[in-house]
Design a protein around this nucleic acid. Structure first.
Length: 488
RNA sequence: CGGAGCGUGGCGCAGCCCGGUAGCGCACCACAAUGGGGUUGUGGGGGUCGCAGGUUCAAAUCCUGUCGCUCCGACCA
C-alpha cells in the first residue's frame, strides 16, 4: 500500500479521492453516484449542522419536515424552476415488486401509478403547496421555516461530497408580506452563511450576486458565497435566493393585507449542503491529509500513549485519568488511541484524519510530570507541565483555527488577479485563480468567455467598484466588476 | 447518450494468447517481541474467477449473450 498521498500539485483530484477515503469520511454507495457518509464524516456534518441550526433558531427560524415525494404535476406549475431540475429527477412510476419465475424480482406492471411521483430535487413546490393552506392574512407572515433533509439530483458525473446523486442539506423557505422584507431575509441568511464559512469552517468567502445565467432558475436574484479551493478553482459553498412572487404565483399563495387587500406573498429560499465538507477538504487539506478547523472537528485532541510493558499501560492510564477528566469536563472533544499500532503509525493516521492537536504521553513524561503537544501543522513538540494544560490547549486550538483561516485567505488573495487585457485574462485563467475585472453586463459576453476559457462569472461581489473599469472582453464601459474563475 | 477500459478473497492486481490442483501484495485473525514519526517474526482464515448459456474428458482461460462499474466529453449545490 502506498503510504503517501498523490502529489497535490500534480493530481489534485486523485489526492482528494484518497483523502476522503483514507480519512474515513465517506464511501461509494451501491447505486451509481450515491454516497455513504461514514461516522467520522457524519460527525463533521453534525457539527456543521449544529452550528448553523443554532444560528437560524436565534434569528427566529423553526425546523419542520416536508415529504420526499412530490406529485409530478407540481413541477409543471413553475416552468422556469422546472428547467433547472427536470433533467435530473428520479421518478417513481410503480409501487410494487413481484417475483418472477424466470427473472427473479421484477416490477409489477399492475402497480403502475396514475400520476408519477418525483423524488424532491429541492422542496419549493411541496412547501408552497402547503403555504397556500397556511397563509391567509398578514398576521400569518412571515413564515420562517427550515428543513434538514436529503434531496436527489440524478447527476451524471459525481464526486463524493462535491456532487452526488443524493446529498444532505438544509433548505430554508420563507414567506413575507413585502419585497423589502424578503430581500432583507435573503441577505441576512447570506451573512449567516458567511459567518458559518469563515468563523467556523475557516473558509474565506466572497459574498455577492449571481449573474442571470448562474442564478437559480426560479429566483429573481441569487446571492452566494464563493470560495477558492487548494487548486485555485472556485466552489460555490452556499446560495440564498430571493424568489420574488414566482412561487406565490405558481401556487396561488395570497394574503390579506392590513387594509384588506389581497396580495401575493414574497418568498426566499436558501441552502447549504454536505458539499461544505468537500470545501473543507479542498481548502485546508495538505500533503499529509485532512486539516480540520478545531471548532467543527469531531476530535480536537488525540492522545497517543506510548508504552512498553503492561505495567506502563496501567501507570499511564492512572497518569492520564485526571488530565483527560479535566479536559473532557471543559468540553474538549478528545480521543485516546490505545490500539496496538506503533506510535509513528498513529501520528500519520491522525494527521490524515485532520485532528488539530495531538498529545503524546510516555514514560519520560510521566517521570517529568509533563505531556507533549504537537499541532497538526508543526513538527515542533511542545513540552508542558501536566498541570493546567487546559488553557494552553484552548489557546492552541484557537490559534489553529485562525491560522487555517489566515492561510486560506492569503492563498486566495495571492491567487486573485486584476488583469489589463483579455490575453492576460486568458493566461491567468489557464494557470488557475480568480480574476477580478470589468464586465459589460451582457450575457453573451459571459457565454463567449465561458466558451473560450471555461471560466464563469462566480459572482458580482458586494464590494465591486466598476467605476472606471472597462469590459475585459468587449472593451466597453464596465457595468459591473465581477469575479471570474473555473469552478467545480 | 458518444469514446475508452475493467469485472478473479475486503482492496489492488497477476494468471487468460497456449484449457489441466486458483496465486501475489496489502488488509484481516492469533501469538511473541517491538513501541517518542508509517516495527518485526512465526502461524492462520477467507475466492461457485460478474451472471447465463455453449464447446470439451476438463473452462478463470475458448465461443455466444447479458448485467454492472470506472474513466473521458454536453448539465449542476
Amino acid at each position: 500500500m502506498s503510504k503517501g498521498l498523490p502529489d497535490r500539485s500534480n493530481d489534485f483530484s486523485a489526492w482528494y479521492t484518497q483523502v476522503v477515503n483514507r480519512a474515513g469520511l465517506a464511501d461509494h454507495g451501491p447505486v451509481k453516484g450515491t454516497m455513504v457518509i461514514k461516522p467520522y464524516g457524519y460527525q463533521l456534518w453534525e457539527n456543521i449542522r449544529d452550528v448553523f441550526d443554532k444560528m437560524i433558531k436565534e434569528t427566529g427560524h423553526v425546523n419542520a419536515y416536508f415529504p420526499l415525494f412530490i406529485p409530478k404535476s407540481f413541477l409543471a406549475k413553475e416552468a422556469e424552476h422546472v428547467e433547472g431540475f427536470a433533467k435530473e429527477c428520479a421518478v417513481v412510476t410503480h409501487t410494487r415488486l413481484k417475483s418472477d419465475p424466470e427473472k427473479g424480482i421484477v416490477v409489477d406492471p399492475e402497480s403502475e401509478l396514475e400520476e408519477e411521483i418525483i423524488v424532491r430535487p429541492t422542496s419549493e413546490t411541496v412547501i408552497w403547496s402547503m403555504y397556500k393552506k397556511w397563509i391567509q392574512s398578514y398576521r400569518d407572515l412571515p413564515v420562517l421555516i427550515n428543513q434538514w433533509a436529503n434531496v436527489v439530483r440524478w447527476e451524471m458525473r459525481t464526486r463524493l461530497f462535491l456532487r452526488t446523486s443524493e446529498f444532505l442539506w438544509q433548505e430554508g423557505h420563507t414567506a413575507h408580506a413585502t419585497s423589502e422584507e424578503a430581500e432583507k431575509e435573503t441577505l441576512d441568511i447570506l451573512e449567516l452563511y458567511r459567518q458559518l464559512a469563515e468563523d467556523y469552517l475557516a473558509i474565506p468567502v466572497i459574498t455577492g450576486l449571481k449573474t442571470d445565467s448562474e442564478k437559480f432558475a426560479g429566483a429573481e436574484r441569487t446571492y452566494c458565497i464563493e470560495a477558492m479551493m487548494g487548486d485555485k478553482r472556485a466552489l460555490q459553498a452556499g446560495t440564498s435566493h430571493n424568489l420574488g412572487q414566482n412561487f406565490a404565483k405558481a401556487f396561488d399563495v395570497t394574503f390579506q393585507t392590513q387594509d384588506n387587500k389581497e396580495e401575493l406573498v414574497w418568498a426566499t429560499s436558501w441552502g447549504v449542503s454536505t458539499r461544505l465538507i468537500g470545501a473543507i477538504i479542498l481548502t485546508h487539506g495538505d500533503d499529509k491529509g485532512l486539516r480540520l478547523p478545531p471548532k467543527i472537528a469531531p476530535i480536537q485532541l488525540v492522545i497517543i500513549p506510548i508504552t512498553k510493558s503492561e505495567d506502563q499501560v496501567n501507570e499511564l492510564k492512572a497518569y492520564l485519568e485526571p488530565i483527560t477528566k479535566n479536559l473532557k469536563e471543559s468540553g474538549i472533544r478528545m480521543h485516546e488511541d490505545w490500539t496496538n499500532n506503533s506510535p509513528g503509525f498513529k501520528f500519520n493516521e491522525w494527521e490524515m484524519k485532520g485532528v488539530p492537536l495531538r498529545m503524546e504521553v510516555g514514560p519520560r513524561d510521566v517521570k517529568e510530570q509533563k505531556v507533549v503537544l504537537v499541532k497538526r501543522d508543526g513538527k515542533e513538540k511542545l513540552f508542558m507541565s501536566k498541570n493546567n494544560i487546559l488553557d494552553p490547549i484552548q489557546k492552541l486550538l484557537k490559534d489553529i483555527q485562525s491560522d487555517l483561516f489566515d492561510r486560506a485567505r492569503d492563498f486566495r488573495d495571492s491567487n486573485t488577479h486584476r488583469v489589463k487585457d483579455y490575453n492576460e485574462f486568458k493566461s491567468v485563467i489557464s494557470r488557475g485563480g480568480f480574476v477580478r475585472c470589468g464586465w459589460n453586463g451582457n450575457p453573451e459576453t459571459e457565454a463567449s468567455i465561458k466558451e473560450e476559457t471555461k471560466a464563469t462569472i462566480r459572482c458580482i461581489p458586494f464590494n465591486e467598484e466598476p467605476k472606471g473599469l472597462s469590459c475585459i472582453f468587449s472593451g466597453e464601459e464596465a457595468k459591473h466588476e465581477v469575479v471570474f474563475a473555473k469552478a467545480y
